[in-house]
């Protein structure tokens, strides 16, 4: 079985770092390559969002192939919103044939949240079904319908959890359920409310989930007041405490304050038991990732032969 770079980093016990690339609303390969080059060497793998916030963008699998050609390890995000089980299983096989191994299973924002609100939301599977189905494709070589794959595939299966969504009491149990379904790693929603995140981690540790699976804590560097306000008011399932808003507001150099906050959070997360890495989502601010990872002492990234 061959392992993805992310899988190797996690297996080595090193504190993992993943980045994120939002594919463009165009077919400009150069744009994708440009963002890939900014992240190269600073992160172990790069998430490719799947039409995030229900806005049409270049296919995450197509971008995944470009990343591989540029020497990066892609994490292909798959939502249940746009494709039924036939399309998803087919796309996963295609992506594996193109060299991809890491897949992140998620439900996806409702189409009403994006630019095509009249679209039919598929949701044939839910995110837990998707995790379980990929696990069965890998471990049992079987499709959802029961037919056998003609040859085995390697997959490193990711799941997401959002400690900031409700009902809060259920969130850690939901994570446990995703692990039981077959998740190999977890990436969380971006943290701004550290107290709530730690409360959630307490429950995660109580359930022993952190010992079964690496949990990568989500981080979004704040670039401006506009960006932080947008996240507070427009992004579903996110909590941005007023203290954060006030801190950025009071700062003369908003960008520097955003970076400082981000580095502080990463350094703190390194000390939280059960956090195995960070997932830095600097979408539309990819160029800041080298500085953040440098200042947070995350460089150089581990290399494997």
């Amino acid at each position: 079985m061959s392992m993805s770079n992310l899988q190797k980093v996690v297996a080595s016990g090193a504190f993992a770092v993943t980045g994120e690339l939002g594919p463009p609303k165009s077919a400009e390969r150069k744009k994708i390559e440009h963002h890939a080059h900014l992240l190269k060497g600073c992160v172990d793998a790069v998430n490719l969002t799947d039409n995030q916030t229900a806005i049409v963008r270049t296919s995450s699998i197509a971008c995944g192939r470009i990343l591989i050609e540029e020497g990066l390890d892609p994490v292909v995000q798959i939502t249940c919103r746009d494709r039924n089980r036939i399309a998803i299983q087919s796309d996963v096989l295609g992506a594996v044939a193109l060299g991809m191994k890491n897949f992140l299973c998620m439900q996806g924002d409702h189409a009403k949240c994006g630019d095509e609100p009249s679209a039919k939301n598929v949701n044939d599977l839910d995110s837990t079904n998707l995790i379980q189905s990929l696990r069965r494709m890998r471990d049992e070589q079987v499709f959802i319908g029961g037919k056998k794959l003609e040859a085995p595939i390697d997959l490193f299966i990711g799941a997401v959890e959002n400690p900031f969504a409700d009902p809060f009491e259920y969130r850690a149990y939901r994570l446990a359920k995703k692990v039981e379904a077959g998740a190999d790693f977890i990436q969380t929603q971006a943290i701004f409310d550290m107290d709530r995140f730690e409360l959630w981690m307490e429950k995660v540790r109580e359930l022993g989930i952190h010992k079964k699976i690496p949990i990568l804590a989500g981080i979004i560097p704040i670039k401006s007041m506009g960006a932080v306000r947008y996240m507070k008011n427009n992004v579903s399932g996110m909590i941005v405490p007023d203290a954060i808003i006030d801190r950025i507001k009071a700062a003369e150099d908003k960008k520097e304050e955003g970076i400082k906050l981000c580095v502080e959070m990463i350094n703190h997360l390194k000390t939280v038991e059960g956090v195995a890495g960070v997932h830095i989502m600097a979408v539309a601010w990819e160029e800041i990732v080298p500085e953040i990872t440098e200042r947070a002492g995350l460089l150089p990234r581990p290399k494997f032969d």
Binding site: C80, R81, M106, Q107, G108, D109, H110, N121, N123, D126, S127, T128, N129, V160, E161, N162, A165, D166, P167, Y170, R174, K177, A181, Q189, S236, G237
Partner: peptide, 11 residues
């Protein structure tokens, strides 16, 4: 989203 296994992350 007609989910079977619990709430999504948008609630």
């Amino acid at each position: 989203k007609s989910m079977l296994n619990g709430p999504c992350g948008g609630s």
